[in-house]
Design a protein around this nucleic acid. Structure first.
Lengths: 222, 222
DNA sequence: AACGCAGAAATTATCTATAACTTTGGATCG
DNA sequence: CGATCCAAAGTTATAGATAATTTCTGCGTT
């Protein structure tokens, strides 16, 4: 329970805010007022400001000097941009990770896939999906690459939660299974090709807005 | 000359420190002591701490809680990692930029290449090289991708300055010319392929250390 | 009714001060 | 002679306070 007890206060606040932004608890464009947040976390505003800088770097918040910081807005263009960046970088990571993948890791990845297929809500599906990608990419041993991919996953999750706020229909992930099969056969290039396409697949869904009209929602579903 | 006069103090300090780290004025592993830096810039330590968070996100500094922040160390592994990330992302950016490239832009890029070939020192070569890449990639219109590439260029420059501290021999950049030729012919895939190889070309050079021994220095030379 | 302009309230950015932690140097003990 | 412990100095992390800027609100004018 004492998760991150040794973390600095600024890091703890940063993680908490990131979680809220990703989950959609704070809406895009909403202002983040440092004194209010400081009061909520029972600290002064200094660590809050440091947390803001971290969120800014992750692309979750934007700051205008003397005008405060807001939750970053996003549109279909950014969804596509993140999808393409993930495709390029995850393929790179997989090529380097492949030689170090053990059957134990691939079994864990299969478990994650099954957990995703069983998920009844977006939140647990996202968790399982992220676990899958993490498992097969981490062995690449490239910390900077993995950190960048993590930030992109955070952005992806945000799009996902914004589009599928509460409704979610279970579906079996054929791509994950195909990737695992290719990896088990030692066919790295084939696995990389599937992963590259998989990550760029953008789900579309008509969503009823508060005003009753229907618009189309977009999110990366991989 | 009042560049960034409207920037916040934290941003100004961040840029100044980034410049020193990249140029090698501060060595890898050196401690960045907030009070000393605050005194130098005639500020308190609070904006200095914010600048630290930004440097951390850029991968130029590492911070251990309660133990201060140091200039990030790097090794051949990270040079290779950055080279591969640049290859993947710059190729992606070029594919999207290609349709928007005008002959005016390509002419500017050719000028940058000539400036690079004429450069007598590393610093001006790096500046010209970065201008070339920026010119042909910016029209992709993907801000997040470009920001990530910028950070990678900063890392590349750091490796470059560390290896070729003062000595530099002029050399004509055939890759840049080949890329421009392919782009002028509308052959995007060929240009992308050359760019991908170009960026991963790691220069090697024997360098005499302070103790008189010779070690091998590595840097991305594209 | 819409627009624009004070004045007031709220908020940001910074500085000064305080508390807590780490490291360092030296003295003591084995 | 070396290791260990203790104390002091230095440094980091947070808190509280201050000045300056922005935003909000209400009123008057067109």
């Amino acid at each position: 329970m004492a998760k991150g007890m040794d973390d600095t206060i600024a890091v703890r606040i940063g993680k908490a805010l990131a979680d809220r932004i990703i989950s959609g608890a704070i809406e895009p464009g909403a202002r983040l007022r440092q004194d209010h947040i400081a009061e909520e976390f029972n600290t002064s505003h200094v660590p809050v400001r440091e947390a803001f800088r971290r969120l800014e770097a992750q692309g979750l918040a934007v700051s205008e000097p003397r005008r405060g910081v807001r939750v970053a807005a996003f549109d279909l263009g950014e969804v596509k941009e993140v999808a393409e960046m993930r495709a390029a970088l995850e393929v790179l990571a997989l090529r380097h990770a492949a030689p170090h993948l053990t059957s134990a890791i691939l079994d864990q990845a299969e478990e994650a896939t099954k957990a995703g297929d069983k998920s009844r809500d977006v939140r647990s599906w996202e968790e399982a999906n992220r676990a899958f990608h993490r498992l097969i990419l981490t062995p690449c041993g490239m910390p900077r690459l993995l950190a960048t991919i993590d930030d992109l996953h955070a952005a992806s999750a945000r799009f996902l939660f914004a589009a599928w706020r509460s409704e979610w229909e279970t579906r079996t992930d054929q791509d994950h299974r195909a990737i695992l099969t290719a990896l088990r056969q030692g066919n790295t290039e084939s696995a990389a090709a599937i992963l590259g396409r998989h990550v760029q697949w953008i789900g579309r869904k008509p969503v009823r807005t508060a005003s009753g009209a229907t618009r189309e929602a977009f999110a990366i579903v991989g």
